[in-house]
């Protein structure tokens, strides 16, 4: 029963006697009212059978006047509205299923071992689980306790819990104004993406840069145009070209062998790419050099150069 019902009876007889009789049998009575030799009492529906039995045993005339407040009996409701109960239960089940976390994704780690953070998160939750706001705050606090983390933000995206982390600056990253280092290109290529966290970017997307070229200078310009030393820090991606040369001495047989080796080399290059790298395409040139055949294969790859 969800809501308690109250039942009002009109009982004929001496008021004091009726009240004492019911009170003696531990029936709670609310506001008995006396009208025309009848006592109107309100009792809880739980006491209904008990009250009627007492009154019958003591030969008291009674009449049920009113039932206050509709009680909801889950069993009765379930039998009566089986279909709708099923619909509600399945809707709730689908809702909780869709809100259940099954994946945990850690974002923003560079130096700290990802498994350490995973363990910290999994110490609070064991997917699949319904994650509440409180639980997310708990996860954030637990991850914050790991050394080297300065900020944590956990949020739910679909069925994935994304834990965004900002690591503390390492000693190298901390600004040494005496020895400022600029960010330089590690490889030759064409810039495709620039993200600068600190310093002044000296290149733009589409620029061709050579290996060792300065990309981010360790200063920023203030309103007066003065250079203020700062830490040069950023992420620059570029399209680079990797070259592989295959040489064949026999002109007649090279074609078949080259095709085989070309496929094999392409497979190796694709497999060797890291998560951040992207394979764009390939092209090749064939030329005669001193009676032998030199085949140059060029692979276009987008990779991080700084």
């Amino acid at each position: 029963m969800i809501f308690r019902e109250k039942i009002e009876y009109a009982i004929t007889g001496n008021v004091e006697y009726i009240i004492n009789l019911l009170a003696k049998h531990n029936v709670a009575i609310n506001r008995p009212i006396v009208k025309n030799d009848r006592c109107f009492v309100k009792i809880s529906s739980n006491d209904r059978e008990k009250v009627e039995k007492i009154l019958k045993n003591y030969g008291k005339k009674f009449e049920l006047i009113k039932v206050y407040g509709k009680g909801i009996n889950i069993k009765k409701l379930a039998k009566k509205h089986l279909f709708w109960v099923g619909v509600i239960i399945s809707t709730l089940a689908i809702f909780f299923y869709s809100q259940t976390i099954i994946n945990v994704q850690i974002i923003g780690l560079k130096r700290i071992d990802e498994s350490t953070v995973y363990q910290a998160v999994l110490s609070e939750i064991k997917p699949p689980i319904y994650v509440t706001k409180n639980l997310m705050n708990k996860i954030e606090k637990t991850v914050m306790n790991i050394d080297g983390i300065s900020y944590v933000s956990a949020k739910k995206e679909g069925r994935t819990l994304k834990v965004n982390i900002v690591e503390e600056l390492s000693k190298i990253d901390k600004l040494d104004t005496q020895n400022l280092i600029s960010v330089k290109a590690s490889e030759e290529g064409m810039i495709t993406k620039i993200v600068v966290y600190g310093g002044t970017c000296l290149v733009k997307v589409g620029d061709k840069v050579s290996k060792g070229q300065e990309l981010i200078a360790p200063y920023h310009l203030n309103a007066d145009g003065d250079k203020k030393p700062t830490l040069a820090f950023g992420k620059i991606e570029a399209k680079i070209t990797k070259e592989i040369q295959l040489t064949y001495s026999n002109e007649r047989e090279y074609n078949e062998r080259f095709l085989q080796e070309y496929d094999e080399q392409t497979r190796l290059v694709k497999e060797g790419l890291s998560k951040d790298e992207k394979y764009l395409g390939t092209h090749f040139f064939v030329k005669n050099v001193d009676k032998s055949i030199v085949c140059s294969i060029y692979y276009d790859i987008i990779t991080r150069i700084a």
Partner: peptide
């Protein structure tokens, strides 16, 4: 006894009588 001007309550070793206006038993149990 019970009416809106006077209510008598039995207790061990005696009786308590209350007088007033609009008196009623709000709740009673054993």
């Amino acid at each position: 006894h019970y009416n809106e001007n006077e209510i008598g309550v039995r207790v061990k070793g005696g009786n308590i009588t209350l007088t007033g206006d609009g008196l009623y038993v709000n709740e009673i149990n054993e």
